[in-house]
Simulated scan of single mutants.
Amino acid sequence: MAADALADVLKTVRMTGAMFYNVAAKAPWAAEQVAPELVLPLIRPGANHLIAYHIVTEGQCYASAVDGGEPIEVHAGEVIVFTRGDPHVMSSEPGMRAGPPSADALAGNIQLPYRVCFGDVGPTTAKLICGFLACDSGPFNPLMESLPQILIGKSDRGHGDMPCLGVLVRIAMNEIRDRRVGGEGVLGKIAELMFVEVVRQYIESLSPDRNGWLAGLKDPFVGKALALMHANPASGWGLEELAREVGSSRSEFADRFASLVGVPPMTYLAKWRMQVASGLLNDNVNIATVAAEVGYSSEAAFSRAFKKIVGEPPSVWRDRHALAA
């Protein structure tokens, strides 16, 4: 059931994927991330959170955050994800820098992914597929708040003889090679699925003593409570009812939930309701209807709660996001 909570969050943040660059590089080479404000409007106007990723299909290279941190060596079959879209450099050796490129080439009427070659002479030392995911970071995004700055996914990790991420990487490579009709849309969807699989690998790697929303998904009591609240946010959930549903005492459940997730269950439910409401408002649903959908008996009560949690009335939120889009 906990997996449903992850699916719900991914749905409400309206994730949209795009693969923009098919890179062939000859050492020495370095490439810096395109500025997020240039990329986001190309993927989904109005989105405010950028995720960058790189799939190494051949060879190896290094990934380095511009603001510091140890360079990370990335090998063929691995996917590196910058979950907050932080400025970073991909390069043949650690410590290299390059000026950020312009996104002008992506604005024209060209077939994506845009092919890029780095380096002048010698053999190709690395091939990458690079792209982005756009999503909404607010008003409440427990997934993005719980993820580390950088994730590494491995194509050979998973269940069965054909690990999911490895299959997705091969499909992406085939689409880029064959450049079939509709390939841009297919690659975008593959990007979304790959992100989910990398997150799954991260969740599976979490140690039992870790806290956070993702750790809560794995917990048998907290995970079930999250699934219940996500499945029916309009229900009049109370602390005692949730504890009973998950098979725990009221006090033990409340302590366990707050310890793992970081907020009490009722606070989480209130924030999640506003996240669901924000998505409905973005779809221009009538405010009274939105209020009923998330469990409020009146538009006035919902508006007060929305303003308290989000910081502005629902009508202002709706109009501001409509303008941005």
Rank of each mutant, 00 (worst) to 15 (best):
G95D: 05
R97H: 14
G46W: 08
G238M: 09
F302S: 01
I152Y: 00
H54G: 13
V199D: 05
L42K: 02
G46L: 01
N22P: 00
G131W: 00
G17F: 02
V310W: 02
L281M: 11
K154Y: 14
H54Y: 11
F253E: 05
R97W: 13
N284C: 12
I287H: 04
I51H: 01
V261G: 00
A18D: 05
W272Q: 07
V23N: 06
A76G: 12
K308Q: 15
L206C: 08
S155D: 06
A322I: 13
G119H: 02
A215R: 03
I150H: 07
R200Q: 12
E204L: 14
V66E: 06
A227Y: 05
D156H: 01
Y268N: 04
A2E: 08
R44N: 10
L193V: 08
L40E: 04
E241W: 09
A231Y: 10
M229P: 07
G131P: 06
S249N: 12
V196C: 08
D161N: 11
A5E: 09
L106A: 03
E93W: 10
V66N: 00
M19A: 09
S297M: 12
G158M: 01
Q275V: 11
A325G: 15
P142F: 00
I171D: 10
A215N: 06
A5H: 06
G247F: 08
G216N: 04
N286K: 13
K224Q: 13
T267W: 02
L50R: 03
N174A: 15
K26W: 03
Y53R: 06
A231G: 15
M19R: 04
D86L: 14
V121S: 11
Y62T: 03
I55F: 08
M173H: 05
E32M: 10
H159T: 15
L133H: 04
I176W: 03
V222C: 04
A225S: 09
L226S: 07
K308I: 11
L323W: 12
R157Y: 10
I110L: 11
P123G: 14
L128P: 06
A322D: 15
G262F: 07
M19C: 10
I150F: 04
G131K: 02
Y296P: 03
E58P: 06
K26M: 10
G182Q: 06
G166I: 01
L281K: 04
D161S: 13
D209R: 04
R210C: 13
G279E: 12
A103Y: 09
A322T: 14
R115V: 12
A107Y: 12
E73G: 09
S205M: 02
V169H: 02
